[in-house]
């Protein structure tokens, strides 16, 4: 199923400089009971964002109107833990299209790529620069350029390149997904299956 195409994204960003943010924080398990992919953004970072009585926690970044944008910048080892794709859905549904971190957990990274959210891994030094730039000026803009595989702090022009394999890059640019591809090679899969040891 096709998803949004991703090309060049220019946006302000929301900083979350905490390390090892796990998918239970991104979307707690009690919000995984839906049978459709709707409404997950409301519960993004639920327990960091809201008190038990559902009032917003004033000190959490998503409740601070100073910070906004389509880019979420997280601390090292973002998305560890559970394989729940709901975490990526919640990030997308909230309005983010790109997550930046100096290190991503594997499954989370793959889930993002599969739904059209671009995970951009930068060096720890560049991550620090991004955090500093956002905190110094929350209106500062960041450009994520997928064709060129660069991320740029537009105020200073400081940039870094990032990795993405060419297959996934092509998918993101065109809004293709893996099932489209796999469906197209089904006869080859069926032939392969006939000769397996198990």
């Amino acid at each position: 199923m096709a998803y949004d195409k991703f090309n060049i994204l220019k946006s302000t960003a929301v900083p979350l400089p905490i390390e090892n943010i796990d998918t239970d924080q991104i979307i707690p398990a009690r919000f995984l009971k839906a049978t459709e992919r709707v409404g997950f953004g409301d519960n993004l970072f639920r327990d960091w964002r809201y008190n038990p009585d559902n009032t917003p926690k004033k000190d959490f970044v998503l409740n601070n109107p100073v910070f906004s944008g389509k880019i979420l910048v997280g601390g090292k080892n973002f998305g560890s833990g559970s394989s729940r794709e709901h975490a990526a859905w919640a990030i997308y549904d909230y309005g983010f299209r790109c997550v930046v971190s100096s290190f991503f957990a594997d499954i989370f990274r793959g889930n993002c790529l599969n739904i059209g959210v671009l995970p951009v891994q930068v060096s720890p030094e560049f991550a620090e620069k991004i955090f500093a730039a956002i905190f110094a000026d929350p209106k500062t803009e960041i450009e994520v350029n997928l064709p060129a595989q660069t991320i740029t702090l537009l105020a200073t022009g400081e940039k870094e390149t990032f990795d993405i394999n060419s297959y996934k890059k092509n998918n993101m640019l065109n809004g293709f997904d893996d099932i489209d591809y796999l469906q197209s090679i089904k006869p080859e899969i069926e032939e392969f299956a006939a000769h397996l040891p198990l």
């Binding site: 794709e85 499954i107 793959g110 889930n111 599969n114 997904d177 893996d178 099932i179 591809y181 469906q183």
Partner: peptide, 22 residues
Amino acid sequence: FGIGTSEVEMVLATQCIMQPKP
């Protein structure tokens, strides 16, 4: 290994998954 829901759909549909070799 664990997979996300898009991949669950992939495996249901084609019994395959697309993974870079770790």
